[in-house]
Amino acid sequence: GTTTLNVPTDQVDHLMHQVADEAGLELNMELPQGQTSTIGTPSTASEQQDELSQRLAQLRQM
């Protein structure tokens, strides 16, 4: 037979974020540049490298 799951969408959403956090994935990767640059110290390795890229690029333009 088939199995029907009725999971509330917000629960699914929450779980997805939880999994993404644990995996260090970036769900908000498509955020426009500049909006992310002023937020405090980035927490994931990938975000930390992104921040270095942005700041190095800015210095290059000076």
């Binding site: 995996a23 260090g24 994935l25 390795a45 990938s46 490298q49 992104d50 270095l52 890229s53 190095l56 690029a57 210095l59 290059r60």
Partner: peptide, 20 residues
């Protein structure tokens, strides 16, 4: 896959940091 992406980013930053 994530580790390789991180490596790519580190390579980019290595070049930029050396230039600076």
């Amino acid at each position: 896959d994530r580790a390789r992406k991180l490596r790519e980013k580190m390579l980019t930053n290595l070049g930029m940091a050396r230039d600076r």
